[in-house]
Amino acid sequence: MTDNARDWPLWEVFVRSRQGLAHKHVGSLHAADGEMAQQNARDVYTRRREGESIWVVLSSEIVASAPDDKGALFDPAEDKVYRHPTFYHVPDEVENL
């Protein structure tokens, strides 16, 4: 992200679409402060009852993994089939397993 002093900071917007579900990232916007980010997020991302709770987070505060680290981070999970239930053989006639 290029920082331009003339732009207000960028905020990431997360919306909970209904009670019982997690907040989900829906987009971003610029705002002078958190309160304004909240209000703008309401106006832009929830005009059709898409949500009932909003989080706004300064984009600059997000610590993201780098695409180049993909291998180091996620490949180790690839060969660990024993973490999945289908890896284990049990007779069909035994139920509720």
Partner: peptide
């Protein structure tokens, strides 16, 4: 018309992910 303003915002945000600033 309000929707169209929102569409502008979604698209400016998408452009910004490519390293350009909104002000520019």
């Amino acid at each position: 018309i309000q929707d169209e303003g929102g569409h502008g915002l979604y698209l400016y945000s998408a452009a910004e992910t490519l390293g350009v600033s909104r002000a520019d």
